[in-house]
Design a protein around this nucleic acid. Structure first.
Lengths: 225, 225
DNA sequence: TGTCGCCTCCCCCATTTGGGGGATTCGTTC
DNA sequence: GAACGAATCCCCCAAATGGGGGAGGCGACA
């Protein structure tokens, strides 16, 4: 069975070029074309393509919004490949969150474009190398923490950090005292010291600080099943 | 200038095959080969290759550890492309965190392999389609939340959720009352209701709950830096 | 029309918290 | 050995919190 493809681009020339290029393949049928996002949603609903090549910059409705609308409402496995003229920055993450399966630059070679269509139709995903690079680095580097926040965290002694973690878990001073085998007064003292050093006024803020600073990461704690 | 490549694989046949394949290209020089991770570190240090093709399964030291060691200690821009026989699950994330720039299956075509080497040498990154797919979905889908936690969150009324957000920001009851233009008693009442519904005993736990449940995401708040 | 949930507020009271003073011991550093 | 930070405790006390009641208004829904 051949792959049904729709091409969405506001420039008829570009659209025609891509469509012609893909139409040459035996296993690819270009079933529809659209010139803007609104039309894209229309043709997607009608023709139910397997793959949609979607330009990101369009009048009426941009490719991002159209992608989101199509992916969210589709009741068949549609894959969207975003096409963009140049290297995008903020668009990437939005596009991926919108449900795109691919992100390629328009200077892609015909063979690569065809391969890309086949790849996503097959359930894979495909990104331009520069995009992949960004995605990896975004993924690999732990979320950047605010420098001043970390600096404040560093001012805490080991014991204080330990207490802060317990505070962040929602423990009362007494519970913390028992857990650490020290007196309640000691914990009180530590908590006071923590609040002073971090410039906070109550333990709820300390909990928030623990999460915001990365001392605690959601998932670390268990909320009692 | 040609791209210096090192090939690391414990099977001499595979290693030789890849090396020969790449050696045919004018712009690629295979400068070294290694049969295990330890040797890979050695040859990387000596030959300073631009790109290293690294098998993931090896005796002595696996490709992940070797990648990490090389990338961390290298003082030149070395790119590592991980080679694997089959579709990997947990390896992917580890590999990317270790500093790999690529992740391809060994059934890759010679042309694609050559293209991959050129791509990463050029500063791009490249992943197998299935890997890309996983990475995207990992990136696009918000971290899965514990069902029971979300269920408990749903029991809160809108006003209570509003109050919980304020509590999670570290606000006192009085501050919340002023922010919401209601009396302090009302806020107290809401907080009590929140704690009861969520099965918590104090507001610090409520803050933790807000973060753990995804009601609040680190980065949302500002800690008044 | 009656009931129910939600929001609003009230009183009372025990407990916890946070801030202000300390003190002591134990290392390390100078 | 003096000086210092860290950890451990103590006192007092004002303020905030949490739990137990309850009450009135209001909109939705049966």
């Amino acid at each position: 069975m051949s792959i049904k493809v729709a091409v969405v681009d506001d420039q008829a020339l570009v659209r025609g070029g891509f469509a012609a290029m893909l139409g040459l393949q035996d296993d690819i049928d270009v079933v529809a074309e659209a010139g803007d996002g609104a039309a894209a949603i229309e043709i997607a609903r009608i023709h139910r393509p397997d793959v949609i090549l979607m330009d990101i910059r369009m009048p009426q409705m941009d490719g991002l919004a159209a992608t989101k609308a199509i992916v969210d409402s589709a009741d068949w496995p549609v894959k969207v490949v975003i096409l963009t003229t140049f290297d995008p920055d903020e668009y990437v993450y939005e596009a991926l969150r919108a449900g795109a399966s691919g992100f390629v630059l328009k200077d892609i070679s015909p063979e690569d474009l065809v391969a890309a269509v086949r790849t996503v139709a097959d359930g894979g995903a495909l990104l331009a190398p520069s995009v992949t690079r960004r995605l990896i680095s975004r993924f690999a580097t732990p979320p950047t923490l605010d420098a001043s926040v970390v600096a404040r965290l560093d001012r805490l002694t080991e014991r204080e950090s330990e207490v802060l973690v317990a505070v962040a878990a929602g423990s009362s001073n007494l519970e913390i005292a028992e857990a650490l085998f020290v007196g309640a007064a000691t914990v009180k003292s530590h908590v006071s010291s923590i609040l002073t050093k971090l410039g906070l006024t109550n333990r709820a803020q300390a909990v928030a600080f623990a999460y915001e600073s990365g001392l605690i990461t959601p998932g670390d704690a268990d909320l009692g099943h």
